[in-house]
Design a protein around this nucleic acid. Structure first.
Lengths: 218, 218
DNA sequence: TAGATTGTTAATCGATTAACAATC
DNA sequence: TAGATTGTTAATCGATTAACAATC
């Protein structure tokens, strides 16, 4: 997929992903008080060649000073403004098992600009046993709560067999972005709804394969 | 990165990732008792065009019957044999906060062929408070335990600032594959050690950007 | 048989890399 | 100034797509 920024060519999705990672780095740099950085140093830190860093940034805007690197704050501002990386978006967790429960308390989400404003689970028993400051609701209230609270994003941590109908319910409720944490792949869902799959077992399997190939396949 | 399988051209990493996802699908199909499947149906289920599915498989071997689709068991066997997707690999969790604790109990890991055989944390207090059947150890014993137990893979869920030294300790201990669950990017680490980054905040930020671009950027 | 579907070759498309003029 | 470093254009490289002969 490619989406265009005004006056610039469309941004390849691979570039968008690298820029998002770079944005995370810039946030760290600001906390640590670093004011300037070169494309070479950004590249070293996120594992990308310097010329790719410059190329990726150039899809968005001119953000550096020829011959003198980038101002961390300026670059961050430019990426935020054009790509929305700094925008705060209200987020919910669906499925409150061990993993979902851990996500409710995951500080990085708040720090990263994604406040968790609701949790959902099909089991009302479970809702009562969880200790958290996040408001919890039974699954059947999803659509109502999403609309009332203006929730834009959802992290889905339900059992694999419940993913399809959970995603459908989220979309019906007006959610526009979903991170699917289960091992069932959810294919693209419709105009204006974006989905990203995080599959831990799949990542381990890819590692396993890389080891097999590296050590000389059978 | 590309790695070659005997008698075939090197496999693009993107193809390897899609095939890993397809392998996961094949496992589901076997559980549900499906014997045959076409490239079109595989593609529909994992969100990839049919011709890409065929192309990806062809990097590995001839695994179908011209005109008659794939036998699920045969295809799974071929992918396992050439790419090691079905290999069981002993795995550990490093960092036993809420997230690491949830991972210790994550059934999908066992089911997926990645038995969790050890957990590590720098805090000995924490080790005492966790209820699990998985043997837990203080972080300083990592290298010893990894060697003794023949552990090949690690999932790192420590605080972001501890990632670098954790990864170094793991590699020193002989770990060959790492999934980094923290938001700090870990760049490629050395010959024969593979790393994959899973960054939830980054995924949400990418979604946020897609929404911004889709709705007409500022 | 006719319809379906694979495996592969060739064509297209797009992303990455290289190189360098501009300039701090 | 001289060295460093950006932004962009052009060249390369590689992946994806299209198309079709083979054949179940």
């Amino acid at each position: 997929m490619k989406l265009s920024s005004p006056n610039r060519a469309a941004i390849p999705e691979a570039a968008l992903q690298r820029l998002s990672t770079a944005f995370g780095l810039l946030q760290e740099l600001r906390i640590s008080g670093t004011d300037e950085i070169s494309s070479a140093e950004i590249g070293r830190r996120i594992g990308v060649p310097a010329h790719s860093v410059r190329k990726d940034i150039s899809y968005v805007a001119e953000a550096g000073r020829t011959g003198a690197g980038y101002d961390v704050e300026v670059l961050q501002g430019v990426l935020d403004q054009h790509l929305g990386f700094g925008r705060k978006r209200r987020t919910c967790i669906v499925g409150l098992g061990r993993m979902g429960g851990a996500l409710l308390a995951f500080q990085e989400l708040w720090a990263g600009g994604f406040p968790i404003v609701a949790g959902f689970d099909a089991s009302t028993n479970k809702l009562e046993t969880i200790r958290t400051n996040v408001p919890l609701f039974p699954a059947y209230q999803m659509a109502d709560v999403i609309k009332r609270e203006g929730i834009e994003l959802a992290i889905v941590a339900v059992p694999a067999e419940a993913v399809q109908r959970t995603v459908q319910a989220l979309i019906a409720g007006g959610i526009t972005g979903i991170v699917n944490f289960t091992s069932a792949v959810v294919a693209p869902a419709g105009e204006g709804v974006f989905i990203r799959n995080i599959d831990l077992v799949n990542e381990l399997r890819i590692l396993s394969s890389l080891l097999t190939l590296h050590n000389g396949a059978a």
